[in-house]
Amino acid sequence: MESIINHLQAVRDESPIVHNITNYVVMNNTANALLAIGASPIMAHAHPELQDMVKISGATVINIGTLDEYWVESMDIATKAANEFGKPWILDPVGAGASAYRNETITKLLKHSPTIIRGNASEIMSMAKVNAVTKGVDSTNTSDEALEAGIALSKKTRAVVCISGEKDYVILEDRVTAIENGHPLMGRITGMGCTATALIGAFAAIVKDPFHATVSAMCVLGIAGEMAAEKSSGPGSLQLHIYDALSQISDTDITNLAKLSSLSNNDL
């Protein structure tokens, strides 16, 4: 708990720049969430400025939700630059398995060694070449069903893998933390997973250990969702209250509400 509290305070104190190449649907939502947590978002995909944007940012977030050829090249340039400048970059493989083009794009991006991969259960299972059922960009698998695939994907890529769902898992090879914070209403807001990825970017920009950064981000968002749900009458008001909760979440909230557990090899 103390680490999560310290990480959140560091994000608020240092206000890291988080560079996002993300999808049209969630741009406004993720930018507002980053501002609410205390980070500084940049949404930039123009080829001539990508080197500069990656260089000044603490982390780069790549979200493949709305693909086209120009943006795929932007993602390729940005991830190469992140490696060149020693910056963490986070991959959100939205809709993995839904089309050959998405799968080809993911394969291309994986060659640039993402620091962290965050996806829903079906996306992670697809990336690990496990049979998964998708409904557009939504998952019809549970995070528990994807846990073995997540471990395999982390071992293959050497990236931290985060499976989001009713229960979130953060994985680094055989190291697994489960997070049971959140609220079912969060699943009825477009791009809540994309928001999680953006927040991971904010923490990864500050916290040197990407595993701890991911755990902190997912825990904070889950708690914020619980706090927001208490004041909300539906998904529309929940979205607004999540921004408020992200900006107001306190040390006491984290201490009292965080639900974390580490899994041993016997539990896997």
Rank of each mutant, 00 (worst) to 15 (best):
S3K: 13
S3V: 11
I4M: 10
I4F: 06
N6L: 14
L8P: 08
Q9Y: 06
Q9S: 08
A10I: 04
V11W: 14
D13A: 07
D13P: 12
D13R: 15
S15N: 13
S15P: 01
S15A: 15
P16G: 06
P16L: 09
P16E: 06
I17F: 10
I17Q: 02
I17D: 04
V18G: 04
V18T: 07
V18L: 05
H19C: 12
H19G: 14
N20L: 07
I21K: 10
I21H: 03
I21S: 06
I21A: 10
T22H: 01
N23T: 05
N23Y: 02
N23Q: 07
Y24N: 14
V25Y: 02
V26D: 03
V26P: 03
N28C: 05
N29Q: 13
A31G: 05
A31H: 06
A31E: 05
A31D: 00
N32E: 05
N32G: 06
A33I: 00
L34G: 04
L35K: 04
A36N: 06
A36Q: 09
A36P: 02
A36R: 14
I37F: 08
I37R: 00
I37E: 06
G38N: 10
G38V: 14
A39W: 06
P41R: 00
P41N: 03
I42Q: 04
I42R: 06
M43C: 04
M43D: 12
A44V: 11
H45V: 03
H47R: 15
H47C: 10
H47P: 04
H47A: 12
H47W: 07
P48G: 11
P48F: 07
E49N: 11
L50Y: 07
L50M: 12
D52I: 02
M53V: 14
K55W: 02
K55Y: 05
K55D: 13
K55T: 12
I56S: 08
S57M: 03
G58D: 05
A59N: 09
T60D: 05
I62M: 09
I62R: 03
I62P: 02
I62C: 09
N63K: 14
N63M: 12
N63H: 07
I64P: 00
G65L: 01
G65K: 07
T66F: 01
T66A: 09
D68L: 05
E69R: 15
E69A: 15
Y70A: 12
W71L: 13
E73M: 09
E73C: 00
E73Q: 15
S74Y: 05
I77R: 14
I77Y: 02
I77P: 01
A78L: 09
T79F: 10
T79D: 08
K80D: 00
K80E: 01
A81G: 03
A82H: 10
A82Y: 11
N83P: 02
N83A: 04
F85A: 10
K87L: 04
P88Q: 13
W89E: 07
